[in-house]
Simulated scan of single mutants.
Amino acid sequence: MSEKSNLPALRKQVTELVLAGSLGHAEQAFADAADQHGDLAVVEVLQDLPPQVTALHMAGFDGGKMSLATLLVPPKAWADSLAFFAATWPDDLIEDDPERIAESLFAHVHGVVFANDDEDRRNALLAEASATDWGSTVFAILFSMAPKEILEVAGEIISKGPYLTGQTSSDNDVVPLAVALAQASEDGWDRALFELFPEFRHSADLADAEFSDDPDEEPKHLQRSTKELLYRLRKQVPSTRSAPKPGARRSMGTNIFS
């Protein structure tokens, strides 16, 4: 039997295993396919899996539990799967511990984006994911964990443009991801930024924005909370009867890296 004729059977097997909750067995099926037919077979199956199945499978893995799917998922397939991640979150967890969900989501995104040193793949993953409405919300959720640091990155982008170094006053793990997004997709960076800070409509507006060191002081500008953004993502989960489509949000970029 040829490799090509094996793929539909593998796709069906993985789908059934994931829907049954047997993520370990699904991962083993990927590993066996890679051993027999090479990584490309896994890539092709991941490319054709329904995005909600990919989301269910990959939600079980994070930066601490690497998988072949993490390493090989095509950028478009990963971007589409992000639309369904919020469907796996219990309502009470969003309400009671939004930071825990955000940290888990960060571990997943960071694990996929920085799974290897292939800069072209990293840029493609970030560009595809941030080109969707739900992707913008996902990045805003991650950035909401460190809004002060994100404003510092935004300020550095405005002042340094293509000479951006990512140096801030914090070593927060979200900073390298923010810098990588800004370098991979100017439009994607802006969309995520304005999803977190909806009052801003232009990157330059952020130049004078500051955060007070007093945690009890009211912020001077509107910032969506992690919980609010999690609920926004939940509302963006597509019906499984229709394929998710990239959003049509217009660009508000300023050509920062030209």
Score class of each variant (00 low, 15 high):
Phe114Ile: 02
Val45Ser: 02
Ala248Gln: 11
Phe257Ser: 07
Ser203Pro: 00
Ala86Lys: 03
Leu93Ser: 10
Asp48Asn: 14
Val237Asp: 03
Ser258Met: 13
Asp173Glu: 15
Pro215Asp: 07
His110Lys: 07
Glu156Asn: 10
Ala127Phe: 04
Leu181Lys: 06
Arg191Glu: 09
Leu23Glu: 04
Phe197Tyr: 12
Val138Tyr: 06
Ala83Trp: 09
Lys220Asp: 15
Ala79Leu: 01
Asp216Lys: 11
Lys65Leu: 04
Pro198Tyr: 09
Ala9Glu: 15
Met145Val: 09
Thr240Cys: 09
Gln167Phe: 09
Asp62Lys: 02
His57Asp: 08
Asp35Tyr: 06
Asp117Ser: 11
Gln52Pro: 01
Ser2Leu: 12
Tyr231Asn: 06
Ala192Gln: 03
Asp171Ile: 13
Ser104Asp: 12
Phe114Met: 04
Asp173Phe: 13
Arg234Gly: 05
Leu125Gln: 09
Ala204Phe: 09
Thr240His: 08
Gln223Pro: 00
Asp216Ser: 10
Arg100Asn: 12
Ser212Thr: 13
Ala243Leu: 12
Leu68Ile: 04
Ala55Ser: 08
Gln52Glu: 15
Thr168Ala: 10
Leu72Thr: 00
Met252Val: 03
Phe85Ile: 11
Leu93Gln: 14
Ala79Trp: 06
Ala59Thr: 05
Val112Arg: 06
Asp205Phe: 07
Asp118Pro: 01
Glu16Met: 06
Glu16Arg: 09
Phe143Thr: 00
Glu3Asp: 14
Ala79Ile: 06
Asn172Arg: 12
Ser5Gly: 02
Glu95Gly: 01
Asp97Phe: 07
Ile158Leu: 15
Lys245Asp: 09
Ser239Tyr: 07
Ala178Val: 13
Ser242Glu: 15
Arg234Ile: 07
Lys245His: 08
Leu196Ser: 02
Phe106Gln: 01
Ile101His: 02
Pro50Cys: 10
Asp48Trp: 08
Leu164His: 04
Ala77Arg: 05
Gly166Thr: 05
Arg232Val: 11
Val18Glu: 08
Ser212Asn: 09
Leu82Ala: 12
Arg122Ile: 00
Thr70Ala: 12
Pro147Glu: 13
Pro198His: 03
Gln223Phe: 08
Glu44Cys: 07
Ala107Glu: 14
Leu82Phe: 05
Ser203Tyr: 06
Val45Tyr: 08
His37Ser: 09
Val237Pro: 01
Asp208Arg: 11
Gln183Val: 01
Asp187Cys: 10
Glu210Ser: 12
Leu10Val: 02
Asp39Arg: 03
Thr226Asp: 08
Lys76Pro: 00
